[in-house]
């Protein structure tokens, strides 16, 4: 039996094409899921932020939904949405949505009441306070929510292999079935970590650029 190394660079060079393809699928799926989730979570949080009880209820529901295991969620969605990309995307959106919603609401609610008072004092209406004062003040929390959601989504995508569309998870499971080919699993794992790291760094930099006022304090 030939050796079964933990990592083998020659596997990477020999399979560069499929590795690139899977990474690309993984990246697109992650970005799409997080973007959709953000497009829902941020406006929703802005809408409910001033209704405390409704906001608490939404966060509660989100916390319950978060306990549904990813394996089960993908598997449940598959018979409804068909095998492949759609159930994975929908599942990822759900999980990212929960993280983003909680972070955004927490950020919007933690704005200094004195600042809100001042804004009202200068004659801002409720909508202006929300958009012009609360939203910028909550931006760091939103960015940290985006980072959290993105990194978890990268990891979660691999579980999509159960319905046949796991991006790099596809390579991991293929390696597992292919006589426990460690090099394939490790390469896919490293690619996954690298992808998460790059996306995280990019979001961090974007957040820094968007919130110049937060830099002086740190």
């Amino acid at each position: 039996m030939p050796g079964n190394p933990w990592f083998d660079w020659s596997w990477v060079t020999a399979n560069a094409e499929v590795l690139t393809l899977r990474t690309w699928q993984h990246l697109l799926l992650t970005l799409e899921a997080v973007a959709i989730a953000a497009a829902i979570a941020v406006p929703l949080a802005l809408l409910v932020v001033r209704r405390r009880r409704l906001a608490a209820g939404i966060v509660g529901v989100a916390a319950v939904a978060y306990t549904v295991p990813s394996l089960a969620l993908f598997a449940i969605l598959a018979p409804v949405l068909g095998i492949g990309r759609t159930p994975v995307l929908v599942g990822l959106v759900v999980y990212a949505l929960l993280v983003l919603l909680r972070q955004t609401l927490a950020g919007l609610q933690s704005v200094d009441p004195a600042v809100l008072d001042a804004a009202r004092g200068v004659g801002y209406g409720p909508a202006q306070v929300t958009v012009l004062v609360r939203l910028p003040a909550a931006l760091p929390a939103v960015v940290s929510g985006l980072r959290l959601a993105t990194v978890s989504t990268v990891a979660l995508t691999t579980v999509g292999v159960i319905v046949g569309y796991g991006g790099l998870g596809q390579l991991m499971f293929e390696g597992f079935r292919n006589n426990f080919h460690r090099a394939e699993i490790s390469a896919a794992t490293l690619a996954c970590l690298l992808l998460a790291f790059v996306l995280d760094a990019a979001l961090w930099a974007t957040g820094r650029a968007l919130t110049p006022w937060a830099r002086r304090r740190a």
Partner: peptide, 11 residues
């Protein structure tokens, strides 16, 4: 968080 649990189990 980015380290897929699936990968650890399979490895």
């Amino acid at each position: 968080r980015a380290l897929p649990t699936l990968a650890i189990i399979l490895l």
